[in-house]
Nucleic acid binder design. Structure first.
Length: 310
DNA sequence: AACAACACCAACCGCCCATTC
DNA sequence: AGAATGGGCGGTTGGTGTTGT
């Protein structure tokens, strides 16, 4: 297919938008709304392609855009979400009201570049990888862990957690959840994963999502009766004994989303500490990074740092 | 003060997918 | 059914501002 027809026109202007163009686009959108973007340029009197107009509006002009530096809370949320879903910028952006996918992507890329530049050579004891993809992915996850640790120094002073997180010889993998309907999946005899949209998270949302799951798959089952810390509950009851599960938390109180993952059995778990927390990263001995976030209400006294040893 | 290197980020590109014809 | 179209998304580029020498 190639380029969009709207962008084939020779007369379309490219490059930075002038204040006059912005004004035209704002005036048009605020009075007429946006339906068909390909019609916008002509009707708004702009020498741009519709796609360019759409991008300009979404990434810069719309009134609910939140500009300025990312707050530490936003940074941590991005880290968590990126750990859970990877480069799905639009998905991540949907969890940060007022932020655009482009902004988050730019932030992440410049941040990664910075980290890579600063990164030390990999330790010699690191398990060799079988292929380039594996290597790239391990490096990628290691960066995430590194970043998370850098941003949570105060939480990572406990030797067991710090040691196991930083020096684990285990190759890291992440479950591929792409292609699964957001909200959930269950497959009966393998691992079950539950996801639900954190936007506007509340018990109604949670129960509504359970209902949606049931509609999607009548065999789906739910072990929690509350949306509080379902991941921990499920991990504790479902990860196999010979698996190592670790969790580090973020104590900032904030509303966050939830990526919840269930495993069949979880034994031999040691709750290292109990304190309030709202964000977690989970590792599994064989699977690596499992998921990136968790939610806990301010009043919760559930545990935050979890580690277990085979 | 001048230049180079770096960092940031707006904008574009190209691909994919859903919808329409 | 299949081509055309439009919207959305992630990757990339290039201009500009900032920092370092």
């Amino acid at each position: 297919m190639g380029q969009h027809s709207c962008c084939n026109q020779q007369k379309v202007k490219r490059g930075l938008w002038s204040p006059e163009e912005d004004e035209k686009l704002i005036r048009y959108i605020t009075t007429r709304g946006y339906g068909c973007w390909s019609e916008v340029p002509e009707k708004a009197g702009l020498q741009r392609c519709g796609k360019s107009c759409r991008l300009r509006w979404i990434n810069y002009l719309r009134p609910d855009i939140r500009r300025g530096r990312f707050t530490p809370e936003e940074e941590k949320l991005i880290i968590s979400l990126h750990g859970a879903v990877g480069n799905r910028w639009a998905h991540i952006a949907s969890h940060l009201p007022g932020r655009t996918d482009n902004e988050i992507k730019n932030y992440w890329n410049s941040w990664i570049k910075k980290k890579i530049r600063k990164a030390a050579p990999p330790p010699a004891t690191k398990k060799p990888c079988t292929n380039d993809q594996h290597s790239q992915f391990n490096s990628y996850v290691s960066n995430q862990i590194d970043n998370f640790l850098n941003n949570n120094q105060d939480l990572l002073t406990k030797p067991p957690l710090q040691d196991t997180l930083c020096s684990s010889p285990t190759p890291l993998f992440m479950f591929d959840t792409s292609g699964l309907p957001e909200g959930i999946i269950t497959d009966g005899n393998q691992r079950r994963e539950l996801f639900h949209d954190p936007v506007g998270l509340n018990s109604e949302t949670w129960h509504m999502n359970q209902q949606e799951v049931q509609e999607l798959n009548p065999t789906a089952s739910f072990s929690m009766d509350s949306y509080y810390l379902p991941s921990l509950i499920n991990l504790e009851s479902t990860v196999p004994m010979d698996h190592q599960v670790q969790c580090c938390g973020v104590t900032e109180e904030r509303e966050m989303g939830l990526e919840c993952l269930e495993r069949e059995e979880l034994m031999n778990v040691e709750w290292v500490e109990s304190q309030q927390c709202s964000s977690f990263l989970f590792w599994d001995q064989s699977e690596g990074l499992l998921c990136g976030e968790e939610i806990a209400p301010a009043s919760s006294n559930t545990g935050t740092m979890l580690s277990s040893y085979p």
